[in-house]
Design a protein around this nucleic acid. Structure first.
Lengths: 220, 220, 220, 220
DNA sequence: AATGAATGAGATTTCATTCAT
DNA sequence: AATGAATGAAATCTCATTCAT
């Protein structure tokens, strides 16, 4: 007899989360409204408040949970790897894959932080810093071991993150390149950047400013 | 003689533009409201409509004008340079500097497109594609000449743009590094990525400054 | 137990409709504002939007529903009557009574059509045409049977409608004449007009009725 | 040096009047806005105030002037005619022609009175009453002379006005009927109504359902 | 846990009117 | 007599949130 309409039971919260990410990704936090959200979940707007406390709390929840999961999965992906080059490779593979598979969640995390209230913002930025530090530590270790040569480790860290994160702005699941290829290309770019390139003309002084070698791929 | 109320004259539109970029940068398009904007300009909210037709039209205007200016300035920066390596160097220097100096305008262009109505969105994306094509063409030319070796020119183009554009998310005018240093670091990263790196231990010969850009310092 | 704030329940929509007709009658569609309307209903202006979608939609709703009801009631009033004279009598009685009893609704329907958006306007005009056609058909039937003699059935139709509808502009419930008397006067005027009058005092017995056609001109 | 844009000189006020009537006819007084009006005149909205004092004053002006002209022209049309029937004919011809030729002005006068402020409203209604009295007096005179037989002279007056005024709601300059024909038809209708019709074929046999209507009384 | 109707604050936009030039 | 930019009030509409049921 009971309730005839809309979603129900313990699945509702999950549905809210998923629709929330989707809508925030499409319209931004400010641009999303709770009536839309409720409609996608299949309930009335007022009913959302049986599951969330405020719109802001929903955003914070989504962002924090995804950052925590990101960190957990990163640590799992790096576990047991010691060599900086291999750790970088693992990091790139993990980060790029995660950003392709969960591009919506990631975009929300990256672009909607400004809508967080100060306290929430601080908590989230701390998590993000932790993630950045993982990469920064690898770069530092590689520099220390002589595997990498970078002008500035901090800038390099940001640059790598920007480079790798950029993938979630253009990746399409059925695009020209498969995920493995995209990972390979980015791994090549990052490692090349971290090692420093061999001067093109190397030891031979001649004018020949060129020499064709598809080395990025070759090295893979 | 002079008008007594509020701001006035031909400077109002310029003030609206500037305050608009500032506020959209801070709060996003949806998060900005016209009362704030009017207040920053020093007029009443309704008076904005002597200068703009709608809030949406203001966003479109700001985005389009900045993309057009970006293109004009890029073309000026590349004018007269033929060699792909030098063109890349010029591109990086221009792009990074522009993104440091006008980080707000750039952020608005990059993050607020989703708030454009379909027709406006299409127009803006076309402009952005034109800009991307400039870089893509340089990469292609470099590959053709043998100066570059990349796995996939299109992905490389996106990767470089993401890398370089990322700078506007963390750059602070009085930060640790000066603008020239940041440009140098990024030039190094991009050229290394495009050329393919020398395998790490390769017996790197002498100082061999490959080009007039300050890469030596960056890599050090 | 009961709700504490404002009006509520399924009666609100009805209250909106009634207050809407009243206010549009008084101030016109453009002249009415939703604050007034909400106040008369006993809710906040924003709460109206739990019941209507836009102000325009409210007008359309009111107009369409009243035209549909008008048609339904007319058809009920004419049901089972075959003779054109009797159908005219029934039409006049119905129309005049309706326009006296619901003069506000009728005025809204007649005067506020120009405020309807094109699509809504078209729908409403179609309904009104249907109503006009009912009268036109009766006139045609009377002309065919020889009961009526009119110069032009279409003009006569419009003239009768104007004549009968005019009553709603001056009728006051407690005026000098009762509703039955007003109906009787109009029935007389219409039938006289449709049959063609006997020249007053005529003095000439003959068949009289000078000519059923455009007598005005002839007399000129 | 002198003025380069827009209309000018003594013709501006006339242009405002004409555009004002047109726009009020189309959108109603409340629905018309002064920017539209200014645009049709070819000046800026602010410049209107060199010619009018307020929007309300413009409406009052338009309405009053047209009513005064209507009265003047009516009196000219009736001058020198003594016989009630001929006076009615003259009245009908004048009124219908005026309402066909100036349907916009007339509609404004008829439908926009509710937007007049009380003082203006009173002045205008007084003028309109004067006009109605002209017709009422003719009807009374005809009844006194035995030329007309109406149930109630006052109702008949309103009915005739409604009937004749209705023409301005459907008349189109290039319609099926010419102005003369329309005048003729209405003259016939009015005279028939005023005189009382001769029962169609007299001595109507049959069961005669006609009698439940209170017509006998009305015509008495 | 859901509904549906309400609140109240605030958003964008409109508009008559003013006024220095 | 015209302009163009301003005011300030008010309009329609949106939306997060509350709450009796």
């Amino acid at each position: 007899m009971a309730r005839t309409r809309g979603s129900s039971g313990p699945k509702t919260m999950q549905a809210i989360r998923e629709a929330g990410v989707r809508l925030i990704y499409q319209h931004g936090y400010e641009g999303m409204n709770l009536r839309q959200l409720a409609q996608q979940v299949g309930i009335q707007a007022g009913s959302l408040y049986n599951h969330i406390s405020t719109k802001q709390a929903l955003l914070f929840d989504l962002v924090r949970e995804h950052l925590e999961q990101l960190l957990r999965e990163l640590d799992a992906a790096l576990a047991g790897i010691a060599d900086p080059v291999e750790r970088i490779e693992a990091f790139v593979a993990f980060h790029v894959n995660y950003h392709m598979v969960r591009k919506r969640e990631v975009s929300v995390v990256n672009f909607e932080l400004r809508s967080l209230e100060p306290a929430n913002y601080a908590a989230v930025v701390a998590l993000r810093r932790t993630y950045e530090r993982r990469l920064n530590d690898i770069v530092d270790a590689g520099v220390a071991s002589g595997a990498f040569a970078v002008g500035d480790a901090r800038v390099a860290t940001f640059a790598i993150l920007a480079l790798l994160t950029g993938v979630c702005t253009w990746y399409r699941p059925n695009g020209r390149l498969g995920r493995d290829q995209i990972v390979a290309v980015h791994t090549g770019l990052v490692l090349d950047g971290l090692r420093g390139a061999k001067p093109k003309r190397a030891a031979r002084p001649g004018p020949g400013r060129s020499s064709k070698r598809a080395r990025g791929r070759a090295r893979r």
